[in-house]
Simulated scan of single mutants.
Amino acid sequence: MINWDGPSVRHILSLSGGKDSTALAIHLRDRVPNMEYIFHDTGKELPDTVAYIERLESYLGQRVIRTTTRQGFDDILRTKGGVLPSGRRRWCTDYLKLKPFEAYIGDEPCINYVGIRADEDRVGYISHKPNIRAVFPFRDDGIDYAGVVRILTDSGLGMPPYTEWGRTRSGCFFCFYQQKIEWVRLKQHYPKLFEEAKAYEKPNRVNGQVFYWTDEPLDQLERPERMAAIEENWERTQERKRARRTQRPLVDVLGGLETEPTPRDGCMICQL
Rank of each mutant, 00 (worst) to 15 (best):
I2V: 15
I2K: 07
N3A: 11
P7M: 11
R10H: 04
S14R: 02
K19Q: 14
A25V: 04
L28Q: 10
R29H: 12
D30T: 06
F39R: 02
T42V: 06
E45T: 03
E45M: 04
E45H: 01
E45L: 06
P47H: 04
D48M: 03
T49A: 08
V50H: 01
I65F: 01
T67I: 04
T69D: 08
Q71S: 05
D74Q: 11
I76H: 14
L77V: 06
V83W: 06
P85V: 08
C92D: 13
C92F: 01
L96V: 04
Y104A: 05
G106T: 08
G106M: 08
I116P: 02
I116T: 14
I116C: 09
G124V: 04
K129L: 15
P130G: 03
I132P: 01
F138R: 09
G147S: 09
S155G: 06
G156E: 13
L157A: 09
G158H: 12
K180A: 12
H189W: 01
Y190R: 10
L193C: 06
F194P: 01
F194G: 02
E196G: 00
A199L: 09
V206W: 06
N207G: 09
G208W: 05
G208F: 04
F211N: 07
D215K: 12
L221G: 03
A229T: 05
E232G: 01
R236M: 13
T237G: 14
Q238Y: 07
R240D: 06
A243D: 14
A243F: 13
T246H: 10
P249N: 11
L250W: 10
V251W: 11
D252C: 10
E258M: 14
R264E: 15
D265C: 00
D265F: 00
M268W: 07
